[in-house]
Amino acid sequence: MSLELVVSDIVAGLFLGASFALIAVGYSMVYGILRLINFAHGDFYMVAAFISYTILGAVTVGTKVDWGNVVWVGVVTMLAGGVLAVAVAKLVYSPMRRAATLSLMIAALGVSQILENGVLNIPSWGSNYLPFPVTPPSAGFTVATVHYTWTQVGIIGIAVVLMGGAYWIVNHTMVGTAMRAVAQDRTAAMLMGIKTDRIISIVFFIGGGLAGAAAIMMSLYYGEINYLMGFSIGLQAFTAAVLGGIGNVAGAALGGLLLGVLESVGTGIFGAQWALLFAFGALVLTLWLRPRGLLGERVGQRV
């Protein structure tokens, strides 16, 4: 296998990893604050993709990309993802705040089923693979016979900026300090006058928003969407979060990028049918060798 191909696999892996990472950050933040493995998180991504599909389809003439449209639909999709996540938190998780973690996890699986089957049963969405209304141009640059598009570069760039933003909020703002406090001791935070429910909602909103961003980016790139698209990517994002050290924003981002590269290079060598094997092999190895994840040493720093 040539070096160019490996390099191109790594770049493709970073691209794939950026989407894992965006979703993993939300996964990780929610876990940090509620100790909840929110299996519905991948479905926030899926629903957001359908929302962007519908809006973008309505405003697009032909298949030519109008970046202005893509940008505002992207923002709307992020907001929609955030609102959906908050709604699920308020309607399902919040009433269960005294329930056991396992009950919450099962509820999350239930939400996942509801969202998937809900989308399946909406007539214009349904079970088919739907072609995304716009196709990004293939313009870009070529390095050593491998072509990279500007869209890819842009997507990685935006993902990095968004994750940087999430990291900044968590670690350098008072709201973020409150998130970390709630993650460490929710009761004590309440006793200090923190509106813990609101802080939890903000975490869900950010997580859902990042999933929304990943949704429009990936839909744009792969060109099709489907009601089950959140399932596998959700598991991979979960793996990425564990790999990086769940509860830790930087860890989730790193885990996502690493996992993307690992899968991409692995499938480059062994074939696409092995992709998930790499993901879950990484999960098993992490749990075996370093259960707290790559950046998980700062226990208590969760969120």
Partner: peptide
């Protein structure tokens, strides 16, 4: 809050 600094612990109260 053990993983917040002393300053963060203080500033948070009343945030």
């Amino acid at each position: 809050f053990p993983a917040l600094t002393v300053e963060e612990n203080l500033e948070l109260a009343g945030f």
